[in-house]
Design a protein around this nucleic acid. Sequence first.
DNA 1: AGCTAAAGTTCTATTTTGAAACTTTTAATC
DNA 2: GATTAAAAGTTTCAAAATAGAACTTTAGCT
Lengths: 109, 109
Amino acid sequence: MKWSNLENEICPIARSLSVMGDRWTLLIIRDCFLGRSRFQQFQNSLGLTRHILADRLKRLVEEDILIRHEYTRGRYDYRLSETGKALEPILRELFKWGKQHRPLRRKVA
Amino acid sequence: MKWSNLENEICPIARSLSVMGDRWTLLIIRDCFLGRSRFQQFQNSLGLTRHILADRLKRLVEEDILIRHEYTRGRYDYRLSETGKALEPILRELFKWGKQHRPLRRKVA
DNA sequence: AGCTAAAGTTCTATTTTGAAACTTTTAATC
DNA sequence: GATTAAAAGTTTCAAAATAGAACTTTAGCT
């Protein structure tokens, strides 16, 4: 099965993951919650390629999770919609689990 | 940047996603919560290729999220560890969001 | 001994992702 | 007013991940 067309699965978890079950989408959304909104900011923060970033932003707008907004003539940034803001509890639980079960091990010397 | 080595990020969300930020892992874990534990069960349920399934199960065992368990001589199945069970709230929130914001639209004739 | 079922492996083709250079538009500077 | 810089993308090509299907191995059943 292709990962696509999970969007029509009966299970709501599968439908959620059809939107954000890839390697970057949730990190982009996290950045939005941290106040980032511009292409460059995402790129600097995440270090993913412009190629993929552009693709993910487009999808997120199509999915009505981000809203493309002209912050100055001809330049656009991306802001969370209400649907996007509703993702906060998911990020909160990912945060909790990571903090508790994947503690950051500092490099020793 | 490669998606790998997210595991050493300062942000706990990134560290969580370094484990489960791919296309199938969370669905496999969902299946575990639904009582599935065997290779065939996952494969039938999810329809992903055996190749990838084997790889993901191996990783989940290495990550101590699943435990490989010999259910009969020479046959192994996979069960949630405590760390794995701690993922439940994440799935719960994914469920809620999907149910509310990605309603299942039935095909009209 | 031969058959079936289950858990994987291996192989090749296709799709997705990564890296880096290029384009376009707007504003700022000389 | 031409020149430069900054930001948001595109394009191109190489590398890596995923899909699909056939193959292997082990154990139990007849």
